[in-house]
Design a protein around this nucleic acid. Sequence first.
DNA 1: ATAATACGTAAAGTACACTTTAAGTCAAGA
DNA 2: TCTTGACTTAAAGTGTACTTTACGTATTAT
Lengths: 145, 145
Amino acid sequence: MVENLAIGEVARRAGIRTSAIRYYEQVGLLPVPRRASGRRRYDPDILDRIALIQFAQRAGFTVGEIRTLFEGFEEGTPMSARWQVLAHVKLAEVDEMMDRAQRMRSLLDQALTCGCLRLEDCARAIHGSALGECLPIEDRSPARE
Amino acid sequence: MVENLAIGEVARRAGIRTSAIRYYEQVGLLPVPRRASGRRRYDPDILDRIALIQFAQRAGFTVGEIRTLFEGFEEGTPMSARWQVLAHVKLAEVDEMMDRAQRMRSLLDQALTCGCLRLEDCARAIHGSALGECLPIEDRSPARE
DNA sequence: ATAATACGTAAAGTACACTTTAAGTCAAGA
DNA sequence: TCTTGACTTAAAGTGTACTTTACGTATTAT
């Protein structure tokens, strides 16, 4: 009966910390396991589950989104359908990420052509040019005062 | 004499909050201004300075890096030289960002081809495949236990 | 004169995904 | 048996870039 992994063993095999496993359990990404004298005991298939979590993370999903993947659909909804919904939204976000990176690249290219001596010259030059009109790095709060 | 902007006016013209201005002052991105009965008074060229900060932020620089741009070089180092140093490093980071986004895209494409019904099937499939071997989304702490 | 703003400060809050700490329990090896 | 090491919990800490809060003062408009 190999059906009994301690949390440390699971962590070792998955390549994460025990604290991460407890955290995943806490936020609902991992099921509450049975206990043996207070300690968590896992079936080996917990490793599949963790691998799925890691896959989703690498794909850019947040913990909240992964929880949605697991529990945010009507019972019986196939995984394929769940992925469809979430991956489409995330793909748009990733594309936005790439656009941002692209914009950063052009700004950096501009910076490399800078010929200014003093800080103030550079500031005035940048303020004068329309470079300031590119899209922001990330959403900032609405702001009113 | 237009040479006297209140913090609220600067904020309005720059499109940021007054709290951001105080924060920039606190972390050394903006000079400590003179005061009129306790209130900050700014010369209009503070707006150039803020525009420069915003430019750098859009290019991906952190507050710490912008402070380095301003104060991290030997006095007299031309701005062009400062940008050279910082922009090269940042360009590499941005390229890494784009690679990560690319990897996310392929994972999401994989997710879209998923034909699994149950969560466990999907988990096993992903764990089985080598999909788990892509690079991590971002650096995680070294981890030892 | 009074009320509504704008300003001042210091400290705490925000989001995210965990980690670290503190203090205590339990089990296995020497 | 004793000691080490793995485990338990709840709560606080981490990093980033600000914002929000709480509370007090000064300016401006009516």
